Computed example of a mutant assay.
Amino acid sequence: MGHRSVADLMTPTAITVRRATTFKEVARLLKEFDITAVPVIDEAGHPVGVVSEADLLRPRPTGGAATAEQLMTSPAVTARLEWSVVRAARVMQRHGVKRLPVVDTDGRVAGVLSRSDLIQLFLRPDHAIREEILEDVLTRTLTLAPSAITVDVEDGLVTLSGTVPRPELLPVVKRLCHGVDGVVTVDSRLTCDSADRT
Score class of each variant (00 low, 15 high):
109 V>S: 02
34 D>R: 15
43 E>D: 09
182 G>L: 05
173 V>S: 00
38 V>T: 12
27 A>Q: 12
114 S>W: 01
108 R>G: 01
11 T>K: 06
62 T>F: 07
21 T>A: 13
136 D>C: 03
9 L>W: 03
95 H>S: 14
174 K>D: 00
104 D>A: 12
181 D>K: 14
124 R>A: 09
19 R>Y: 09
38 V>I: 14
26 V>R: 01
18 R>M: 14
63 G>Q: 03
59 P>H: 10
124 R>N: 07
140 R>E: 15
81 L>E: 11
145 A>C: 12
142 L>M: 11
57 L>A: 14
17 V>T: 07
32 E>G: 08
2 G>P: 06
133 I>Y: 00
163 T>M: 07
161 S>H: 08
6 V>K: 04
70 Q>D: 09
138 L>M: 05
191 T>K: 12
164 V>S: 02
188 S>M: 00
188 S>Q: 03
30 L>F: 05
78 T>Y: 05
149 I>E: 00
117 D>C: 08
144 L>Q: 02
190 L>A: 06
148 A>L: 07
101 P>G: 02
60 R>P: 05
161 S>T: 15
69 E>K: 09
185 T>H: 11
97 V>I: 14
22 T>S: 15
83 W>C: 01
62 T>K: 12
12 P>M: 04
160 L>Y: 03
25 E>G: 10
66 A>G: 03
85 V>W: 02
130 R>S: 11
28 R>N: 14
117 D>I: 07
98 K>N: 04
105 T>P: 10
196 D>P: 13
114 S>D: 06
13 T>N: 02
69 E>V: 12
124 R>Q: 13
124 R>L: 09
179 G>F: 04
7 A>P: 08
149 I>R: 00
128 A>H: 13
113 L>I: 10
13 T>A: 01
85 V>M: 11
79 A>L: 05
134 L>P: 01
45 G>L: 10
192 C>Q: 04
43 E>T: 04
24 K>R: 15
51 V>S: 01
192 C>E: 11
160 L>I: 11
179 G>H: 08
189 R>K: 07
50 V>K: 03
99 R>W: 02
157 L>N: 07
86 V>F: 06
20 A>L: 13
13 T>I: 05
35 I>F: 07
140 R>V: 08
47 P>T: 09
133 I>F: 00
6 V>M: 08
185 T>M: 08
151 V>A: 03
152 D>L: 13
101 P>L: 02
135 E>R: 10
32 E>N: 13
99 R>Y: 00
66 A>W: 01
134 L>Y: 06
